[in-house]
Amino acid sequence: MNHKYIAFETIVIKEIRRFARIWLQTLVPPAMMIGLYFVIFGNLVGRRIGEMGGYQYMEFIVPGLIMMSVIQNSYSNVVSSFFSHKFQHSIEELLVSPVPNYVILCGFVAGGMARGLGVGIIVTLMSLFFVDLAIQNLAITIAVVLLTSIVFSLAGFINALFANSFDDISIVPTFVLTPLIYLGGVFYSVELLPPFWKFVSGLNPIFYMVNTFRYGILGTSDVDIVWAFLILLLFITLLYICCIVLLRRGTGLRS
């Protein structure tokens, strides 16, 4: 077996073992939080809202909530795991070994995807208690969720490289990621917004990801699907190049 593949597999297994070992911190809280969204916003408040974008409010928010859990967990897994390796200096185990930078990156991204998609599946199963999900386009649904998970795993990796303290790994999720998710059309249709805010929403990449995922599940979307996939691929390319350049320079890793 190729030594690079073995190294990649080792990183992925280590990452999965890490978040599985602390499942009470990594898997249960996000699932519980999204469950509360289902009960409060979807069920209790949603019944009074009625329809949104031509669907029952509960049906409308389910894709957004699944995507929200994938984004948050992909990001937080990579940023917290990689920063912990830096903090404990165990990242040196990897840096002294002959693992190429791209294998290190792909290993951590795959770990982030495993947790992001794992929580996404848990949330999807929970949603079945509240709505009947009939996926309209399975290929688009799977493709968009995978690509979105990659984007935020890469973003989490960059955050971890620059982070010097545990505060630094919570700033971006709290002050950047959460507002972008909430304003990314998870809870409302962009058609409800005035033209200016509709335009502003168009600048938010998460808006495209949520709507494309919603298209895959419900069959309707506020955005052009092709455009959304191009944005995703563009982000992946830019973030990947950025990560590789930073790794090569040793930013945040080598003195």
Partner: peptide
């Protein structure tokens, strides 16, 4: 092979896992 001055493995992992992981980084079956 390098043995550093300060402990630099994860304190939460088992002894065997630490050595096996390192072997994996070196591409050992």
């Amino acid at each position: 092979g390098v043995v550093p001055q300060e402990v630099n493995f994860s304190q939460f992992e088992k002894v065997r896992d630490i050595v096996m992981t390192q072997a994996g980084y070196y591409g050992m079956p």
